[in-house]
Design a binder for these strands. Structure first.
Lengths: 240, 240
DNA sequence: ACCTGAACACCGTTCAAGT
DNA sequence: ACCTGAACACCGTTCAAGT
């Protein structure tokens, strides 16, 4: 629960524990083996301690994973340039959103742990940045909160959905042992093709789209729809 | 792995096991105690068997939870009336989306297990219904897949984000022991209020919105933005 | 075909004891 | 203040054995 303070880490024995060191190692382990693969015993061994030592710095596994996810989000925010003063809100939101998506794409376990309503540091920063951009639109102030959180929910929620199958410990398909993304898509495309066109008129004619789609495009398609809706609402077309 | 076939359930001993019975009991247990609270031992005891018996009907816990989530989705689809032939796509999508949100709101553990790309029966039905509605808009056919999946991602992903804190085993806030939703919101609103307005200009002036917001409104706000974007894209305003 | 229940190989977490 | 590591109270899953 306590951070190391006082002496610099190098002042003690090499590789002294600290919350930062533990979270860093946890991120690496999560990337490698997923949420189920992260174990206090394994993490402790990699840090040359016993499992009990970790509990001095971290309350429990939930907190550890939440801290790790927030660190991923922090990297994403650092990568996304703060928009200039005068820049359009829409483009600022777009670069912010895609930066977060890209980070979550590299750390698929993290997306579902970015909590809402925001409490951890970088989740707070993300929502504040979104809100600041939304406030630049012509929308009435009383709608800023609902719209900002909606955008924030879109970013993390949709990213989580898209990216979840990439997690090292994601549950596999009910039948196939398909392992690569292409094989998996080919397999489910085939299943869609075998459905009854009367019951599933849409899916049965969409199998090639499924097979060839790009995950990042999926994210931006919905995002652009959302931002387009924002435009249309901020600057409604005159009634005809 | 096998369904019961042949004799009707009542033909054997009362309360004979079957995949359906197991999934039904799992839903009840998940509602009551959350995903961590669902245990093969506990579930078996409630069904008057040993844990091993369940594995005859279900591959493992991942599959069990996925089946339970798909059942919840099925209930939602049954509740959402199929749109009439001529009805507008937008309104059809809206009733479908809110029906799913409402179901996931009642079963908060389910949202994150509605898988994508869709493979289970009711996830397939949902995406097909969305696609059929999207196909009614004036949008070019080659965009139908991307847009339909984007909407589907919005529905399940954003619902998952909004509804997750409601789950019986959701991780609690880092500091408070707040338990009711109101107490939790009041608590984090207070934390927002204590932030530095220079670093968090938006959040610090938005605490009352946080305190009084409605979760369902959050969902529909983003949904309406998305559908508005759909409108604007399907029927673009003439360039000025 | 379907069920039983003990057993295996783990977990997260605690805590007395050390330095 | 911080670390150690054994111990507790569980898990999911398997499997020989039953009916």
């Amino acid at each position: 629960m306590q951070r190391t303070r006082g002496r610099a880490p190098t002042g003690g024995r090499a590789g002294a524990l600290s919350r930062e060191v533990i979270v860093g190692a946890a991120v690496a382990l999560l990337d490698e083996r997923g949420e189920r693969g992260l174990t206090f015993r394994l993490l402790a061994k990699q840090l040359n301690t016993g499992p009990g030592a970790l509990y001095w710095h971290v309350t429990n596994k939930d907190e550890l994973v939440a801290l790790a996810a927030d660190q991923v989000l922090g990297d994403a925010l650092a990568a996304a340039p703060r928009p200039e003063e005068g820049a359009a809100a829409g483009s600022g939101l777009r670069v912010l959103a895609t930066a977060v998506f890209d980070a979550l794409d590299r750390h698929p376990w993290a997306a579902s742990h970015v909590n809402a309503p925001a409490t951890r540091e970088n989740a707070l920063r993300l929502l504040d940045r979104i809100g600041t951009l939304v406030a630049r639109t012509g929308l009435p102030a009383e709608r800023h909160f609902a719209i900002s959180t909606a955008i924030s929910y879109y970013i993390t929620g949709v990213s989580a959905q898209i990216v979840a199958p990439r997690a090292p410990d994601a549950p596999r398909a009910p039948d196939g042992a398909a392992t690569s993304r292409d094989a998996y898509l080919a397999h489910t495309a085939e299943r869609w093709g075998e459905l009854d066109p009367v019951d599933y008129p849409f899916l049965t004619r969409t199998t090639t789209d499924l097979r060839h789609h790009d995950d990042r495009d999926q994210f931006t398609t919905g995002l652009d729809l959302l931002l387009e809706g924002l435009n249309a609402t901020a600057d409604p077309r005159p009634p005809t």
